Simulated scan of single mutants.
Amino acid sequence: MSEQTGHNHFSNLTANEVSNLWSSYLKNSMEQRLFEYFYESCEDEQIKAMAKKILDHAKLSLEELAVIFNKDNLTTPHAFTEQDVTPDAHKVFSDTFILYFCHDITMLSLSTYPSALSDCSRPDVRDFFQKRIEMSMSMQNDVINLMLEKGVYLKPAQLEMENEVDFVQSKKYLSGFFTGSRPVNALEIANLTRILHRAQFSKMVFVTLHKLANKVELKEHFSQGRNGIESVLESLSEVLEKENIPLSASSDFKISPVEMSPFSDKLMLFFVNTCLGMFCFQMVAQALNSTLRSDIVMKLTKISTKMRKYYSEGLVIAIKEGWFEQPPNPVDHKV
């Protein structure tokens, strides 16, 4: 290896790399604490094994991240500790609900790691995110196969599609609210279904976290989140119902009476801000970028505005409680 090549390999981290590594550490720390409890409380052996796989992957990721942080003299995030989880707490979530959590975490990973990989240039950092993508793909395959086997996978609508190539002849194709609407196309159905399925899961997460939270302010915040998700379900379901497009739904987002919360308020709020918040923003943004009917665009824009306000309030709570860990700052070079 030439001196120049060696220098490139161990060059200083870019701001993008620091940001991605920092976010990945917090994400994996959260997953470790969540799945320590899910693994201990799960009774179904197949789902328990899946929870263990995600738990082990989170621990391995944290170990590899710590090596990079130490090598580059970066302060390792405090993130989440044993104080944020009680693994032997009373069982709250049904095993199927835990399986939906497994699915949600793998989806989050596959939406964040690829963008992190494309944003990085240093070989060891790229190698880290490349491995995370490969592991996440493998776990998602396992999770979906298990959901299909147990009959709980929420399939999008299966429709008979036209098999002729056609081109739009009029700008009326973009209308929908004022001048009557054309039928929704396959891309719009896919995006709306994806958001609605996520909203069903998110709604029950909010219901559960409202029961688990200790602080009154946080209970109210999670209750508001539940109400916001309910309005999303009503608004977007209306589009599909008008055209008799079926939407599958789970009946097994079951929770047991709460004796003691297995998670700290800090951990639950971070999950809401990160998994439910950031992931939902991505889904809505994707739908907005590919939707052509004006009435759907208006609905999605309204949803996005309300979401932004809600999750901003969540960040304010985290800061007020001293839970928001400040990302690394560059050295101040101002004179």
Rank of each mutant, 00 (worst) to 15 (best):
H210Y: 12
G314L: 06
Y39G: 01
K59Q: 13
L192T: 11
H7L: 07
N244Y: 09
M298V: 14
L218Y: 03
V168G: 02
Y100D: 06
Q200V: 02
K71H: 07
L236E: 03
E149G: 02
A199H: 09
P327Q: 05
A89K: 11
E43Y: 02
P262G: 05
H90M: 04
K131Q: 12
F178K: 11
F222P: 02
P183A: 09
R308V: 02
P156T: 10
T81Y: 00
R198E: 11
E17R: 08
M307W: 02
D88E: 11
W22F: 14
S61N: 14
A116E: 01
G228K: 04
N16F: 07
S256F: 14
K211R: 13
F10R: 03
D95P: 08
L196A: 06
S19W: 08
Q32C: 04
C120I: 04
A190T: 08
Q286S: 15
T14V: 10
S61M: 04
Y311P: 01
T96C: 04
S235V: 05
Y311R: 01
L212P: 03
D166Q: 11
S170R: 13
N145D: 13
T301R: 10
E241L: 06
R293L: 12
E82N: 09
Q4S: 07
M147N: 02
I245E: 01
V205T: 12
R182C: 06
P246C: 10
L60A: 05
N141S: 12
V316T: 10
A15V: 10
Y153N: 11
K254W: 09
L60W: 01
V125W: 05
K27W: 13
A15I: 07
T274D: 12
S11M: 12
M298L: 15
S261L: 03
Q286G: 14
S237A: 03
N20Q: 10
L269S: 03
G277N: 01
T96V: 15
G6A: 07
